[in-house]
């Protein structure tokens, strides 16, 4: 199987291209996705290939983008919507929560919404607050939605492919910090990864680090530091899907290591880390040697970029929390 080295933007573009070639019902809509190919170029060249009926430039109207897509999905199309930044999605949250997420239940299965809502999220790019936040907990809360966050080019491509094929609405977050951060080998043939499945990306027996999205790289680097400086063998779990959460993989790992630290760049209170910690409590209480630690952004609005490094978890903070957990 041939492979190419792609960054995350190109990998996402490849998933869109191949799914649009495979299935004529798949289409794209959003602000600047067509002529401009998206603010981050994820939809680059797709309008030229598929025409303006399948790659639709919308007005600046997030609620209209999602509302239109819900209507399209009810009639059998498979829209992939782009919201330019996740901070703008509060404008369309009622369409997502009240309609996209509920049609299957409300219509007792007569209608469903096969649609993907893609949004760039997260910090690390020195942008202002609406453009840097992590709002995954809003969507993970909503019954009827799936919430996916890939951690690199290959998982991004494979999970976007699965999201487009999923019969129900999927909210798909893409870390801006990862868009151009690194290239990975990506198979040329279509590849899909199951939604709802976490991956153990590094095996270890002393401690479990749980992360996703841009924080996975931070967790892996912290694991390297702990290996080199403390001779600690860290297991690293990449969640990939926030909801439904793969509790089995998390609990199995913590049952083995007895210690866990969860890392995310969303604010701490009521965040995904709380859900992970509570799930460990329920599933592996008697295996725990230490309390589960959360390393997260502070409980404030996303800070101005001069203070960004003090706000988003870094390797030093993750390693420090890991050492406290190991010393407990």
């Amino acid at each position: 199987m041939s492979v190419t080295k792609l960054n995350m933007v190109k990998a996402l573009n490849l998933a869109l291209l191949q799914e649009m070639e495979r299935d004529p019902a798949v289409l794209i809509l959003g602000e600047d996705v067509g002529v401009d190919g998206g603010v981050f170029r994820v939809t680059d060249d797709l309008q030229r290939k598929f025409g303006s009926q399948r790659v639709i430039d919308s007005p600046l109207a997030e609620a209209a983008i999602i509302g239109t897509a819900v209507g399209m999905a009810l009639y059998g199309l498979k829209p992939v919507c782009e919201i330019q930044f996740s901070g703008f999605a509060f404008q369309c949250f009622h369409q997502i929560e009240n309609h996209a997420a509920r049609y299957r239940l409300r219509s007792q299965g007569r209608f469903h919404c096969q649609m993907v809502i893609r949004m760039p999220y997260g910090g690390g790019v020195r942008a202002l607050e609406h453009h840097t936040e992590s709002e995954e907990q809003f969507y993970a809360h909503v019954p009827g939605l799936k919430m996916v966050i890939p951690s690199g080019p290959r998982t991004a491509r494979a999970l976007l492919t699965s999201a487009i094929r999923d019969p129900d609405p999927v909210v798909f977050f893409e870390s801006k910090a990862l868009y151009h951060a690194a290239k990975e080998e990506v198979p040329a043939d279509p590849e899909a990864l199951p939604i709802g499945r976490a991956q153990v990306v590094r095996e270890g027996r002393d401690l479990t680090l749980i992360a996703y999205g841009a924080m996975l790289r931070v967790a892996r680097e912290a694991a390297d530091v702990l290996q080199a400086e403390d001779r600690v063998e860290t297991e690293v779990v990449d969640l990939l899907t926030i909801a439904p959460l793969d509790r089995e993989t998390i609990v199995t790992s913590v049952a083995k290591t007895g210690r866990a630290v969860v890392v995310h760049e969303a604010p701490r209170s009521f965040g995904p880390g709380a859900e992970v910690a509570a799930s460990i409590m329920e599933g592996a209480f008697l295996h725990l040697e230490a309390p589960v630690r959360r390393v997260t952004a502070n409980d404030v609005s996303f800070v101005g970029f001069a203070r960004e490094k003090a706000h988003v978890p870094d390797v030093a903070r993750v390693a420090a929390a890991a050492r406290e957990t190991l010393a407990f």
Binding site: Q137, A140, H141, V142, P143, A243, L245, S269, F270, G271, P272, G273, A274, E275, A277, A278, M281, E282, P291, V292, R293, R294
Partner: peptide
Amino acid sequence: AGFAGMGSEISAFVTE
């Protein structure tokens, strides 16, 4: 519905 809800937060901080 509970996901990352009050119970999750309380469980997390009680553990901490």
